[in-house]
Structures are given as structure tokens and as C-alpha cells.
Amino acid sequence: MLAVAVFWIMAVLAVLGGLGVIVSRQPIRSILSLVVVMLALSVLFLLLSAQFVFAVQVIVYAGAVMVLFLFVVALLGPGRERRGGRLRFQWWLGSLVGLVFGGFIYSMLQGARFRPPQHTDLSTFGTVQEIGLGIFTRFLYPFELTSVLLLVAAVGAIYLSRGGRVGEGRGAAADDGRVRGEEEPHA
């Protein structure tokens, strides 16, 4: 009963947050709406007794990724999104894509049956120990491959952000403190 009430509150919050992301004209409001989505989703994970996923969702997405987004927006300080610049047939195209996507979701939900997992011990389900076992035994290769994929993306982003030049220009070497001609002892 309580779980159903929490589910509906969080589901409505998540959808409202999602709307806020695309509707608000201030970038900072969009980001905070996305934070609301992340937090609402994390509570939904908790309702599914996935404790660890809940913690990771809050720490990584709400706590780190979104803070970086907010950091960039606060640093660049765009007051408002610029109006205009729309395609002539944007409404038409947007509706079509939305319709197709809605159709996809509808057809996917046709085959879904909502029931608790059958072969899992629900008392240990979603605990840190269980997730760790899964990641390092059954899902070892998918897990490691995903981390390689993320590494590739990070390296690629660094390469692109420096305009394709490596080892020249205003890069890490210039920021290394050697500009001042000194090497501060620390640690």
C-alpha cells in the first residue's frame, strides 16, 4: 500500500521532471529537472529492492554527472536558451518520431508480464554482495567490455576537445606548473 503510493508519487515526479528538462528555457532549470528525474528513478530502484543500484544511481548520476553539468552551465552562464533556429517542418517531424517511439514502447510492453523474479532469493536480491558476485563471475566479460567502451569514449572526448592535436598547444603540459618555473613540493 505504502509502496504503491511511493511509486505513484515518484513516477509522477519523474515524468514532471522529464517535462521540465525540455520545457524550461533556463538551462539551469533543465539540469535541476533532470536531477529530479534521477532521484525519482533511484527511489523506484529502491522500491524494487535494488539497494545498491539506488546508491550508485544517486552517487554517480545525481551526485557526480549532474554536478558536472551544473558546473559547466554555471561556468559559461547562458542566461536563456535562444529562441528561433527551428526547422520549418519541426512540429511535423517531431510528432512523427514521437508516434513511432510511442508505438515501440507500446509493442514492447505487450509481451511484458509483471511478476517477481522466480529463481532469485529475494532476501539477498540487490545487496552489494550479490551484485559483486554477478559482476565478477557471470557478467565479467560484459562488465569489463563496458568499462573499455567508457574508456574509449573518455579518450575520444579528450582528443576531440583538443581539436585533434596531441602534445602541442595549450594542453596539460602548459598547465603543469612548469610555466612558473617551479615544482611545488606537496603531499
Binding site: I28, Q51, A55, I59, G63, V67, L70, A74, Q129
Partner: peptide, 25 residues
Amino acid sequence: NPNIGILLVFAVSSMNAYALLLGGW
């Protein structure tokens, strides 16, 4: 006394960044 224990402390305290950043902004 949940299974995730101290992860909850990390999760909650990561919200501090919002307080300081939003306060400044």
C-alpha cells in the same frame, strides 16, 4: 541498518555539491 550502509552516507553527502554550487549561482 541497510545492506548498503555507508554508501548511503556517500549518496547523501554528494548532494552537498548542489547546495554550494546552487547557493553560489
